[in-house]
Write a protein that binds this DNA or RNA. Structure first.
Length: 599
RNA sequence: GGGCCCUUAGCUCAGUUGGAUAGAGCAGCCGACUUCUAAUCGGCAGGUCGAGGGUUCGAAUCCUUCAGGGCCCGCCA
């Protein structure tokens, strides 16, 4: 079913992945040192070391890395933190990678790495290319990311765009960190809104036949249905003109849904989003798959006939108690049990959703992720309950809620109203700013924070525009490579790999290399937390580091990338090139093309 | 009435499975262009992390109560 999975498991490529996460390396070194201390009796054997961290300190004055090992272990070891720290620091200092390990504060060990370590990072990036930062963390785990999943009733709008970008970046991030990812779109083509769509298209069909048509309340008035009506005429002629709804509804439903999905696919393609799988809700009906999923739950005594308590607070006017078929979602943390059948016996939307997730689980995924709009927040608990019930808790479902986008122009909000037909589509946004800017800006906020998207500001070429700022850093490096070539220096990656990186001896250069070295760790954190925005923020910081070093070359010409001595030049260019490679890798995850020049 | 999310500098927001003196950009003030792109950079100033209580060596982060904002709350998906 999925070609990548076979190779990704067992003896596959992840077995060979060399960890490039420097922080993980030093943590391993720390654990080794602790094991030595246990062996010689300084600390007890068998201490739990899961909470030992090695991370970059906030304050650079505290060195390159800091570990909390002594503080975490003090209590279980029955020793003073500083005593453990002293012994541990002594052990760490013996490693050639450690220039200095000193005890500070309540028992931190501040570690300063040998310059050689930072120089090596640059070399590793040049060898690994944009694969520097790839991780085996996911161990080939199969993850399904479901996103967009918009009702096929019209073109995608700005809100969908954010979900699309988020889901796509998350999928890429998970792939980069060693997961086997399937990108999936669930087509909500089973509900009553498709009838509305069909009736709306029918009116456009009549229009195409020259009839004067009024658009009553409750149909979709959008112009985008005009060509669908015309296409319908082209295919079926006047066969359905002035015929009763029963005759044409099913056929036009199918026709219109297909047309809308074409629209959606076109929009997604413009954004650079390519789904692996489209799953249809409608296709679940009449196949017995909904019934099968419900039966599975019934077998676990999670389906029953019952009557729900009326909702607290404002009571709907027409509320009356009814007996319904309910799913016992409270058994898995939901607040109330949820109906899966309407009072007329047909399924609620929840039932096919259960079947759909049953299907996903049946396809063998190890983890599921759904990207929903924030207005679906009330749906999270029951969906998680359903998946937990279907899999006995063995397959985690994470649901990421995407907050609204406020679209602005010159600081003025563009008010949107679907009824007035003034909503801004994904296509409109791409026309205005292009796919790269759209994607990057959509990821400059955490998913659960509202996002202001000012279409005039994001095109500004200034540092308050993060897209530009990051692209500019990349373009600057490309400029250096061009200048180097003009000066007769071989600045190809092959050549730079052989550069004498020992010449990168300045603290400012090592600081930038240190930022580069954070990339693999950042990837793992972002992947673990399912937060691709972290990549965008990191790229901003990395770009900032490059700009800073660049400008130091104004005062101190020895810090400029291009030097009179070719060997020195190549070492410095190698550093710049490493930065550009990591920027390219990060932008790749976000789905943004790096710029070679900004003119 | 209940559930979920949010509240961090004047503004917009980051903040690492709990870590040291809480960061960035914008706005404000001061500075750097005979230069690989000044479309950039450096510095100053700016905070009871919504409020109270708790957990512990240590809390913006975890628990709890409260306040304010958003989304949702049987037969719409």
């Amino acid at each position: 079913m999925n070609k990548a999975s076979a190779g990704a498991r067992g003896m596959g490529p992840f077995r060979r992945t060399r960890p490039m996460n420097l922080f993980a390396d030093i943590r391993a070194l720390t654990l080794d040192a602790l094991a030595d201390l246990a062996r010689d009796g300084t600390i007890p054997e068998g201490l739990e070391t899961g909470n030992v961290t090695v991370e970059p300190p906030r304050d650079p004055a505290h060195g390159d890395m800091a570990t909390n090992a002594a503080m975490v272990l003090a209590k279980p070891a029955g020793l003073k933190p500083r005593d453990i720290a002293e012994a541990l620091a002594a052990h760490l200092s013996a490693d050639p990678r450690i220039a200095e390990a000193e005890v500070a504060g309540p028992g931190f060990i501040n570690i300063r790495l040998a310059p050689r370590v930072w120089q090596d990072v640059v070399g590793k990036v040049l060898v690994a290319g944009t694969g520097f930062g790839r991780s085996g963390m996911g161990q080939g785990q199969r993850v399904n990311v479901e996103y967009v999943s918009a009702n096929p009733t019209g073109p995608l709008h700005v809100g969908h765009t954010r979900g699309a970008v988020f889901g796509d970046a998350l999928a890429a991030l998970l792939e980069y960190s060693g997961h086997d990812v399937t990108r999936e779109y669930y087509i909500n083509d089973g509900g009553g809104q498709i009838d509305t769509l069909a009736r709306s298209v029918y009116l456009r069909y009549l229009e195409a036949h020259g009839q004067e048509v009024a658009f009553p309340e409750g149909v979709y008035p959008g112009d985008y249905l005009v060509p669908v009506g015309e296409a319908l005429k082209a295919e079926y002629g006047d066969a359905w003109v002035d015929r009763p709804e029963e005759e044409w509804l099913p056929a036009i439903r199918a026709f219109a849904t297909e047309a809308m999905m074409d629209l959606v696919r076109t929009d997604l393609a413009r954004l650079g989003v390519k789904m692996d799988v489209f799953s249809s809700e409608k296709a679940l009906y009449g196949t017995g798959r909904i019934e099968a999923a419900i039966e599975e739950l019934r077998g676990k005594d999670l389906i029953y006939r019952g009557t729900l308590e009326p909702p607290k607070g404002k009571l709907p006017e027409d509320w009356e108690a009814r007996e319904q078929t309910l799913f016992r979602s409270t058994a898995y943390g939901d607040d109330v049990d949820r109906p899966i059948q309407k009072s007329d016996g047909s399924w609620t939307y929840f039932a096919p959703d259960i079947a759909y997730h049953h299907d996903k689980v049946g396809r063998g995924f190890d983890a599921l992720i759904n990207v929903f709009g924030a207005d679906h927040g009330g749906y999270v608990k029951r969906m998680k309950a359903a998946v937990a019930a279907l899999t006995d808790g063995t397959v985690p479902l994470d649901i990421k809620l995407i907050q609204i986008v406020r679209l602005l122009r010159d600081g003025q909000e563009l008010k949107m109203s679907k009824r007035a037909g003034t909503f801004v589509t994904l296509s409109d946004v791409i026309d205005m700013v292009g796919p790269d800017v759209t994607r990057f800006v959509m990821l400059t906020r955490k998913n659960d924070a509202p996002l202001d998207f000012d279409v005039s500001k994001v095109l500004e070429q200034s540092k308050d525009n993060p897209v530009f700022y990051v692209q500019y850093a990349h373009a600057r490096v490309m400029s250096v490579l061009r200048k180097a070539a003009e000066a007769g220096i071989d600045a190809s990656d092959e050549s730079l790999r052989t550069a004498d990186l020992g010449k990168l001896d300045h603290e400012a250069e090592q600081a930038l290399a240190a930022k580069v070295a954070e990339w693999p760790r950042l990837v793992e954190i972002a992947a673990r937390t399912h937060e691709p925005h972290r990549v965008a923020f990191y790229l901003y910081e990395l770009a900032s580091g490059l700009h800073a070093l660049w400008n130091r070359g104004h005062e101190d010409t020895t810090l400029r990338f291009l030097q009179d001595d070719p060997d020195t030049s190549r070492a410095k260019i190698a550093l710049a090139r490493a930065v550009s490679i990591v920027i390219a890798a990060g932008l790749g995850i976000l789905g943004v093309e790096p710029a070679n020049e900004m003119r």
